[in-house]
Computed example of a mutant assay.
Amino acid sequence: MDYVLSTLTTRFLSASRTLCKRDWAGGQTYNNAFARLYWIDSGEGVVYHHRRKFPLRPGRLYVIPAHTSSRYFSFGAMDLFWAHFTAQVLGGLDLFAFLGCDYQAPAPDHAAMRRTWDRVLETLREGSPAGELERDGLLRQMLSRFVAGADAGQLRRTRQLERFGEVFAFIEARLAGPITLAELAEVAHLQPTYFSNLFSRHMRMPPLRYVSRRRVERAQGLLWQSDAPLKEIARAVGFDDVSYFSRVFRKVAGVSPGRFRRQKTLPVP
C-alpha cells in the first residue's frame, strides 16, 4: 500500500460552491474524465453510480471516480461545495478504481470542513503558486479520509495488485499500439494462461479487456482536453478503425464519443 501511494499524482482542475435547486442535474447520466469531490453544507440530494445509491447529506465527503457513469438529484435547495480533480497511481490508474474503497467518508466536524473548502476557494481566487501547492495539500488531506476508511479486504486486494505494477506501467506506455497477452505475461514473468487467470481474479476482468478499458479512458481524457478529430484520437489510443473505436467506447463508457465530448458544455458541478 505504501508503494502504491508513493506513486500518487494529483491534479486539481476546478472547484466552486453551487446552490442547487430542486431536481438539480435532472437525473441525466454523466461520465467524465476527471473525478468529483462533493461536500454538502446544507440540504440533501442523491447520486447514483456503481449500481448504488448515495444519499448526499451534511457530515460526509463523497467522491465520484473518473470514468464513472452517474446520475444526480437534489431534494429542494442544496448548498454544494465541489472539486474536479484527477488522482492516479502507478502511472495512470485512477486511485479509487485501484483501491476499490467506499465512495463516501465521514467529515463530522462541520465547521472545520467548511473552513477547508473556504480556503480551497480562496486559493483559487488568489491564483498564486503557493496557493496552488496549498490547494493540492488540502485536496490530498480530504482524499486521505477515503483511504483511511478502506477495510482490510480492500487493502489486501491493493497489496495483491502491487505485483502487477510493471504490467500496468507497460500498458500505460503502449496504449497507442498493439498489446498482446503474451507480452503482458512476459512482463509479469509468468506463463500466459496462469497470468491471465491471476490478473482476472484480482482485476475482475481479463487482461485484454482491461487494456480496452484503459484505451477508452485515455480517449476520454483526450476528448475532454482537446478538439482533435475523432479519427486522430482513435489512433492515439490504438484504434485504426473509427467505427470500431466508437463501438468499444460506447460499450465501456455508456455513451458515444461525440456525446461524451458534448458533456464539456453541460453546467453540472
Score class of each variant (00 low, 15 high):
84 H>V: 01
48 Y>C: 13
181 L>Q: 14
79 D>I: 11
217 E>V: 05
63 V>Y: 06
109 D>L: 04
36 R>M: 00
57 R>Y: 00
36 R>Q: 01
202 H>D: 15
14 S>V: 02
204 R>Q: 13
167 V>S: 09
141 Q>T: 15
12 F>D: 02
131 G>F: 05
112 A>C: 01
237 V>G: 08
122 E>F: 06
12 F>G: 02
107 A>Q: 01
94 D>A: 01
191 Q>Y: 07
83 A>W: 01
234 A>G: 07
126 E>P: 06
109 D>Y: 02
204 R>N: 12
156 R>F: 05
177 G>Y: 03
210 Y>I: 02
85 F>C: 04
107 A>H: 00
23 D>S: 05
205 M>S: 07
121 L>F: 04
208 L>K: 05
237 V>Y: 08
120 V>H: 01
43 G>M: 05
56 L>E: 11
168 F>I: 12
71 R>Y: 03
256 S>M: 11
230 L>C: 11
38 Y>R: 06
134 E>D: 13
36 R>V: 01
119 R>L: 11
86 T>G: 03
167 V>C: 08
2 D>F: 02
144 S>G: 07
263 Q>M: 15
172 E>Q: 13
86 T>A: 03
91 G>C: 03
212 S>V: 07
183 E>G: 05
191 Q>P: 01
228 A>M: 15
252 V>I: 15
144 S>N: 06
148 A>S: 14
173 A>I: 12
188 A>R: 10
198 L>Q: 13
190 L>K: 14
79 D>Y: 03
226 S>K: 07
